[in-house]
Design a binder for these strands. Structure first.
Lengths: 109, 109
DNA sequence: CGTGTAAGGAATTCTGACACG
DNA sequence: CGTGTAAGGAATTCTGACACG
């Protein structure tokens, strides 16, 4: 589950109040985006939310899209696509897919 | 006053409770090291302390030295030396100093 | 759908001080 | 000197709900 371990960027250590200051979003908005599964903070033992710098960046992207009128549902889809694209497994499959396409194309011709 | 700006490492965003968990130090200890000027967290508008990952690393160094019985006073001196060494201005002067030393050495011989 | 807000409780943080040594 | 602790107050965060639209 861990990648670099020394990547400060992904350490969940920021409380929601600071995230709010950093992003300009209200606490309500930040919690709502979690409900819609756009972000997933960690919880401390007693249940307070902790965010990483990655989460903060993600929230700023979300804020931009929301400003453009994009619904959370759409934002979720877009983000899933993006994540897929950066997934090595998916890349491999895409490559195979492309080769197959070329193959079919040649045969059709 | 800023270096990279994109250096998450130096952004003061972590509350003292999290720092305590991260370092294993008590709140009392963390505040005391601040009193002794070993660290300098930022304050939010209402006065709560905010630390960076750099601060956390520094605190871990402090913890190690304290375990070895080094007094805060000594730790402060050591850290100042270290900072001097990594200060470009100081480097320049040291270089000049060395050259001078060589010069004197030659003349003496 | 996305966000504001009032509500009540629980957990956090702050400071200054006394204690021990 | 370095750290623990009890004390009282202020600020933070949490959840579930009602409101508007």
């Amino acid at each position: 589950m861990e990648q670099h371990d020394h990547s400060y960027k992904d350490k969940k250590v920021i409380s929601i109040g600071i995230v709010s200051e950093l992003t300009g979003l209200s606490l309500r908005q930040i919690r709502y985006y979690e409900e819609r599964r756009l972000i997933s903070p960690q919880r401390t033992t007693r249940g307070t939310r902790k965010y990483s710098f990655s989460d903060v960046e993600r929230l700023m992207e979300i804020a931009n899209k929301r400003e453009d009128g994009v619904q959370t549902n759409e934002i979720l889809k877009e983000m899933r696509k993006k994540e897929m694209r950066s997934n090595p497994d998916y890349r491999k499959k895409m490559l195979e897919g492309q080769l197959n396409a070329q193959f079919h194309f040649r045969n059709k011709k």
